[in-house]
């Protein structure tokens, strides 16, 4: 179980997250949604340890992990698929998947991760993670790296962005499978993904607005609520 208690996050004197209190239970599927700039990615980065909260604590399975580094959290079982995949000079897809897995894996095994995100695998393994890959390809490789890492708490930041319909179908399946043995947190604007959620968390200007999925979906239907992009 992951708990965020009274989390505040300030950047350049601006309050980006304002007193966030959330509990993520094991093997449940959470969707965080909300308008652009509402603090969703910041919240994910705070969970991953990329940002340090200005105040508040993070408790994981009863331990205070607020001061744990990114590496320590990764080793504890946290994983984060970035909203904007990182470009590298020289690092290949194959290397990235090896690092994600934490050990040398066969090309065949690496391929299975790529095929799960709909990439014709062999062709991609030796490609460098640079601009020569399209946005959608990079996004899928980013997701594959988290599938390979297989974390206990997996966070995906707008995984649907830049992904065509195929892939969307597939993506929802990946999430469904994942929930069986882990906590999955997906930042998304997609109704289909929202519908799969055990719990929907709406962020607005850095505060949690509402966590009742049914109400939220009705609101979306009635267009009362911002869907983001």
């Amino acid at each position: 179980m992951l708990e965020l208690k009274n989390i505040c996050f300030e950047q350049n004197g601006e309050l980006i997250l304002n007193n966030i209190n959330l509990t993520f239970e094991d093997n449940k599927f959470y969707v965080i949604t909300g308008p652009n700039g509402s603090g969703k990615s910041s919240l994910a980065k705070i969970i991953m340890g990329i940002y340090k909260p200005t105040s508040g604590v993070i408790i994981y399975n009863g331990h205070n992990i607020t001061d744990k580094s990114i590496t320590e959290r990764a080793k504890l079982g946290f994983g984060y698929a970035f909203q904007t995949p990182t470009l590298f000079k020289g690092l290949t897809v194959w290397e990235l998947l090896n690092i994600a897995k934490g050990k040398k894996i066969s090309k065949k095994e690496a391929c299975t991760f790529l095929s799960q995100v709909g990439l014709c695998a062999q062709k991609y393994l030796d490609r460098e993670l640079n601009k020569s890959l399209s946005g959608g390809e990079l996004k899928r490789i980013e997701i594959a790296s988290i599938i390979a890492k297989n974390p206990a708490i997996a966070i995906f930041d707008e995984p649907e962005a830049g992904i065509d319909l195929w892939s969307f179908e597939h993506l929802t399946k990946i999430f469904k499978d994942m929930v069986l043995d882990k906590t999955t947190i997906v930042i998304s604007h997609q109704e289909r993904i929202l519908k799969m959620a055990d719990k929907v968390i709406l962020l607005d200007k850095g505060t949690v607005k509402e966590v009742k999925k049914e109400d939220f979906l009705t609101k979306i239907a009635n267009k009362e609520c911002a869907k983001g992009e």
């Binding site: 990114i70 990764a74 994983g79 990182t86 690092i99 890492k149």
Partner: peptide, 12 residues
């Protein structure tokens, strides 16, 4: 960014 990504996969 490159460091952060690899650290989030477990490297120091």
């Amino acid at each position: 960014e490159e460091l952060l990504k690899l650290m989030s996969l477990g490297l120091t």
